[in-house]
Simulated scan of single mutants.
Amino acid sequence: MADIVNLRHVRKQKARLEKEHTADQNRALHGRTRAEKERDRMTADRSERFVAGHRREPSGGDSEQ
């Protein structure tokens, strides 16, 4: 004889698999977590401050012409 299957459980399992598939697609699309984005932003800010701190300022007189 065949096994008895509760269709409600089958529908719920199918819905879970579809949600998981959608979540995988979104992860691939959007890629990074908030922590990774924040870390990259902080690294970029730190390097920009470093470069800005070592930048030579132009002298007051531009009479080299």
Rank of each mutant, 00 (worst) to 15 (best):
E48Y: 08
E64W: 08
M42S: 12
G53W: 00
M42F: 10
A52P: 15
S47R: 14
G31Y: 07
E57Q: 06
H54A: 13
S63K: 00
A35I: 14
R39N: 07
R34I: 15
S47M: 10
G60H: 04
K37S: 10
P58T: 00
E36M: 00
D45H: 04
A52I: 04
E64G: 06
E64D: 08
A52W: 04
R34M: 13
G53F: 01
N26W: 11
R56M: 03
L29Q: 11
V51T: 00
G60K: 13
R55P: 14
R27S: 09
S47A: 14
D62L: 09
G53N: 08
G61I: 13
L29N: 03
G31R: 07
R41P: 15
A52H: 09
R32T: 06
G60E: 14
A44F: 00
G60D: 15
G60P: 13
E38R: 12
D45M: 06
E36D: 02
E38P: 06
S63L: 03
A35V: 10
T43H: 08
S63W: 10
M42D: 14
D40Y: 01
P58N: 00
G31F: 03
R34S: 15
S63P: 03
R34N: 15
R39G: 07
N26C: 08
D62V: 07
A52F: 13
D24Q: 15
T22H: 15
D24M: 13
E36N: 02
G53R: 00
T22Q: 13
A28W: 12
A28G: 14
N26R: 12
R49K: 04
R56K: 01
T43P: 02
D45K: 03
D40M: 02
D24N: 11
G60M: 09
R49G: 05
R32A: 10
Q25Y: 14
R27L: 12
S47Q: 15
R39C: 08
D40I: 04
R49H: 09
E38D: 10
H30T: 10
G31I: 02
E57H: 05
